[in-house]
Amino acid sequence: MAETRQTRQQHKKKKSSNEDESSLLDATTDKKKKLKQLDDFIEGVLQEAGEEFLEEFKQVEGQ
């Protein structure tokens, strides 16, 4: 009986550990995906003019 209970506990622990690892993996994958989207966005901005933007973006002194 004790052995069965122990086996059951081991199964439960293993299953819970697997679930944690799986969630962690999902979170990591999700984060990687978001960072990729960010990098793509940055790439888009960098492909736009650099000097021309800086020349065009002029303001008058405020307060």
Binding site: D39, I42, E43, V45, L46, E48, G50, F53, L54
Partner: peptide, 17 residues
């Protein structure tokens, strides 16, 4: 990612964006 120098105007553009 782009091997840019700090003085690159594209980086300054990113700063403003």
């Amino acid at each position: 990612k782009k091997a840019l120098d700090w003085s690159d105007p594209h980086l300054l553009h990113l700063d403003f964006r």
